[in-house]
């Protein structure tokens, strides 16, 4: 996993609530057996009309907006556990997703792929949407070390929470497998006592 540092970028405002992982990557694109290439079909049915032409009304097709930060609506990533959703978003080029609320499984999947879910207050999310729409060139800063999301030019900022362990993993590029393998001995010991206890 890539190490996560500070992200300074313009952002794309996706003001839709309850975006489920079926929208992020529809099931018909889940037939691939590796992790690459899902970005091409990210938000496929919102980005394209049925005849394959671009839906110019959809924010990801609006050339005014670009960047590695997606500022989404409430309850982002609900539904299916498909990690393909996180792969599609990173492959599309996102490094950070901002929302006022993330679904559990998506949040875990994002963190396991170096995609930072930043949970902000409803009020701050509204402000972000408003300011980005006012000025699509405005830059957001996400500083994981200090757990701050900010628009420095407007002196707007908010702190965000992240599990200490996960933060260390993101900053250093570690993943859970490395950690779990280092605990193999305790796991084997647990198995022995656990089996005795249960029978």
């Amino acid at each position: 996993m890539e190490k996560f540092k500070i992200v300074n970028s313009t952002a794309i405002p996706l003001e839709i609530e309850n975006v489920d992982t079926d929208q992020i990557i529809p099931a018909r694109f889940l037939k691939a057996t590796d992790r690459k290439g899902f970005g091409e079909n990210a938000f496929r049915d919102w980005r394209y009309h049925d005849n394959g032409t671009e839906n110019t009304d959809f924010i990801l097709n609006n050339s005014n907006y670009s960047g590695t930060i997606l500022v989404a609506g409430n309850n982002f990533g609900c539904g299916s556990s498909r990690e393909h959703a996180a792969w599609a978003l990173t492959d599309f080029g996102f490094k950070v997703i901002v929302s006022s609320f993330f679904a559990d499984i998506f949040k875990g999947n994002a963190l396991n792929n170096g995609l930072l879910p930043v949970q902000v207050s409803e009020g701050f999310l509204k402000t972000l949407h408003k300011e980005i729409k006012n000025n699509p060139d405005i830059e957001l800063t996400i500083d994981l070390e200090s757990q701050i999301i900010a628009i420095k030019s407007l002196q707007l900022s908010e702190n965000f929470e992240i599990d200490t362990y996960k933060k260390t993993c993101m900053i250093n590029g570690y993943d859970d497998i490395d950690y779990l393998l280092s605990k193999k001995k305790s796991i084997v010991t647990f198995e022995t006592t656990y089996k005795l206890h249960k029978n």
Binding site: S81, R82, E83, H84, A86, I105, G108, N109, N112, N113, D175, D176, I177, L180, L181, K183, K184, I187
Partner: peptide, 13 residues
């Protein structure tokens, strides 16, 4: 339910 990275974690440990 778990994501695929977690499937790998359970495979490993």
């Amino acid at each position: 339910g778990i994501g695929t990275s977690q499937v790998a974690q359970v495979f490993a440990s």
